[in-house]
Amino acid sequence: MTDGTPGATRRRLAQELAVVAGFEDPRAPLEQYHTPPDLAAHIVHVADLQGDIEGETVVDLGCGTGMLALGAALRGPKRVVGVDIDPAPLSTALDNERRVGATADVSWLRADATEAPLCPDDGVTVLMNPPFGAQTGNEGADRAFLETAVDIAAVSYSVHNAGSESFVESFADDNAGEVTHAFAAEFDLPRQFDHHEESTRSIDTEVFRIEWGQ
């Protein structure tokens, strides 16, 4: 008998996403980090429980190799669109789509997620793990991603550095939005850039669900 509890359902999704390959040649200026399957499954599971996935259009801004997009694709959306400026991870995302066996309508779009050429007829659900702005010259990168969410989303889920609550709530208030859910999550980072000194480390992050006034 299948365990249908929320925790078991989330764990099952994480297992399905474990086959998603990461970046072959990650670019530090773009802060390309592989979203951990457990974190992606948690975000998608919460979104699904809120009615934000099934039958909806889901857009993954800065999708990388497709972890969040493919998590959503396994939960019965109307369609999924992954947007990324770098063609290399989009090619991997297409391979990952085959690996997870997604049957949903999934499209991969090469474009700047901060200027996404999307004009949806109805509000969409945005899932995103935007750059945190940790690289010099990339400060405030997550703000630009939120600005895109304002334009296209009815609701968004986004990952930010721990301690971002006041910034995210203030941004939402200024743009007719409301933070309805927030939860802490660990983000495991493997050593993949020269400035990394440890083989792996965990950073504290926060995930926010925002409803936007359309």
Rank of each mutant, 00 (worst) to 15 (best):
76 G>A: 14
29 P>K: 03
56 E>I: 03
37 P>Q: 05
26 P>I: 02
211 E>H: 15
170 S>N: 04
97 E>H: 14
107 S>K: 10
146 L>A: 05
150 V>H: 01
62 G>R: 04
94 L>G: 03
93 A>M: 08
198 E>A: 15
99 R>I: 01
189 L>H: 14
152 I>Q: 01
154 A>V: 02
118 L>A: 10
120 P>S: 06
157 Y>R: 00
133 G>F: 04
128 M>L: 08
123 G>S: 13
140 G>Y: 01
185 A>C: 09
91 S>N: 12
27 R>H: 09
86 D>V: 07
37 P>N: 01
70 L>H: 11
201 R>D: 15
96 N>M: 04
6 P>K: 10
118 L>K: 05
175 N>P: 04
14 A>S: 12
105 D>M: 05
64 G>H: 06
55 G>S: 13
37 P>F: 07
160 H>D: 00
162 A>N: 00
39 L>W: 04
204 D>A: 15
30 L>G: 04
140 G>E: 00
9 T>E: 15
157 Y>D: 00
191 R>D: 13
178 E>K: 03
180 T>Q: 09
95 D>N: 12
96 N>K: 05
64 G>N: 10
144 A>S: 05
59 V>P: 02
84 D>C: 11
131 P>Y: 05
98 R>H: 08
34 H>M: 08
173 D>V: 03
37 P>E: 02
88 A>V: 08
100 V>C: 12
204 D>K: 13
35 T>Q: 05
167 F>S: 01
159 V>R: 01
1 M>E: 11
111 A>Q: 03
151 D>V: 00
152 I>Y: 00
140 G>M: 02
74 L>R: 05
116 A>D: 07
160 H>A: 00
171 F>H: 11
34 H>S: 11
102 A>K: 12
2 T>Q: 10
203 I>H: 09
196 H>G: 10
137 G>K: 06
63 C>I: 04
97 E>W: 10
184 A>D: 14
209 R>W: 14
45 H>R: 07
94 L>I: 13
147 E>M: 01
85 I>S: 14
124 V>Y: 10
136 T>K: 13
86 D>R: 02
7 G>S: 12
88 A>S: 12
24 E>P: 03
9 T>C: 09
46 V>Q: 11
37 P>D: 05
93 A>V: 08
144 A>M: 02
64 G>F: 12
101 G>N: 13
22 G>S: 10
127 L>A: 08
205 T>M: 07
100 V>S: 12
110 R>T: 06
189 L>W: 13
212 W>R: 11
209 R>K: 14
130 P>I: 07
182 A>I: 09
194 D>E: 15
165 E>M: 00
78 K>V: 07
